[in-house]
């Protein structure tokens, strides 16, 4: 059994390609965050004003300087807290125990209907 064969280069290249492909569409900064619980949008947060918001999924989020972070959570590992602040559309904050996802969205206005 060999440690390295020529075909391994293909796998390494494929792995790098995936990384680059996924990372390349760099996120845009935006001033709106959405909170999803169980895949449902439960809250929209305006990032243009600083605030601390208690989410009833058991998390406290803090908005400062257009960035949003989780400062407290009732989940055991508190990984979402250690992730720190996000402000780009490409990386969400995920809390698996709370089944919650916080992501930055590029646009606030998605009109459902127009009155005329």
């Amino acid at each position: 059994m060999k440690f390295f064969t020529r075909n391994d280069i293909l796998i390494v290249i494929a792995a790098f390609a995936i990384v680059i492909l996924f990372v390349f569409p760099r996120g845009k900064a935006s001033s709106f965050a959405e909170v999803y619980h169980d895949g449902r949008l439960v809250r929209t947060i305006d990032l243009s004003s600083d605030s601390e918001i208690f989410l009833d999924v058991g998390m406290v989020v803090k908005v400062q300087d257009g960035r949003i972070s989780v400062i407290d959570s009732d989940c055991p590992e508190k990984l979402c807290v250690s992730q720190g602040a996000i402000s780009m559309t490409n990386i969400p904050i995920v809390c698996v125990p709370n089944r919650t996802l916080i992501k930055i969205v590029s646009s606030q206005f998605e009109v459902d209907a127009i009155t005329q």
Binding site: R40, F109, E110, V111, D112, A113, T115
Partner: peptide, 26 residues
């Protein structure tokens, strides 16, 4: 959901049960 009759809009219930419907004024 909601009903839109030529721009007259009546709401059946909030979007996903807890979100507002966003209505634009033309």
């Amino acid at each position: 959901g909601f009903i839109d009759a030529g721009g007259d809009i009546g709401v059946i219930g909030p979007k996903y049960g807890n979100r507002p419907w966003i209505v634009g004024v033309r």
